[in-house]
Design a protein around this nucleic acid. Structure first.
Lengths: 128, 128
DNA sequence: TTGCTCCTCACGTCACGTGAGGTGGC
DNA sequence: TTGCTCCTCACGTCACGTGAGGTGGC
């Protein structure tokens, strides 16, 4: 029987996302992932893979794992109660404002980097 | 006698650079700063202030404190040498690539957030 | 059997955070 | 004396890194 294309080993995911297996296990330790087991071995579903991708995306944005957890849990369907939906929308808007702030931080840093680089290049040329 | 404008207390610098006093003391613990003392109290010179600014700039460039130390110590003897400048330019370019990645991550998350919000609004409307 | 990948502890690291408890001068 | 800022331990935290020692199936 061929390997199912609908599941992944820990090292499959580690390679795909360029992280260590320790990192992936750590996310399980703190409850961010809960793969099935075949004996001792962890078996990851496409849903697990998606959660991992979202966790890592959050990290690249400078979020803590707890902050990522909140956002990821937003995507989880099932709870279609009116009050919860409104809270979700609020959380989404809060998150969007944070992202907008980050975007302008990045713009500022880009300006600084360009200036720093120009200064370096000047120094290089004048020392020649 | 008026306070000298050529020295700073730890909280002067903490306020100016928006960090905690613990952070500044930590940099001393690991040998990145070595202010004078008046009794127990730390007295920071303009040179110390410059070093702190460079440390924090390095942090914003995504360097570890050890990496910052290397670059800062390059500046020390007043010799802005060619190899050092080239390393600095490399660090700048690496950081710029990181920022570009972050920028596209933000764009992706914005798209996801917009979609999640639209889904929420749909769910709200159809439940009315 | 060998090699590979998987596993579970569990201590280490980095960059500080966070009290606890105390000193010193305006 | 009170209030403020300064100080020194020293344990805690976050996100893993890094062995040590062992299992399981092709």
């Amino acid at each position: 029987m061929p390997k199912s294309t609908l599941s992944y080993t820990i090292s499959d995911l580690a390679k795909e996302f360029q992280v260590t297996t320790r990192t992936i296990r750590h996310y399980e330790d703190i409850g961010l992932l809960s793969p099935e087991r075949r004996g001792q071995t962890r078996i990851y579903s496409p849903a697990d893979r998606t959660r991992l991708r979202l966790i890592l995306r959050g990290k690249r944005l400078g979020l803590s794992l707890d902050e990522s957890r909140e956002i990821i849990d937003m995507y989880e369907p099932g709870k279609t109660n009116r009050a919860q939906l409104l809270r979700l929308i609020e959380a989404i808007q809060r998150q969007r404002r944070k992202l907008e702030e980050q975007r302008s931080e990045i713009a500022k840093m880009m300006t600084d980097l360009n200036k720093a680089e120009a200064d370096c290049l000047d120094a290089l040329n004048s020392s020649r």
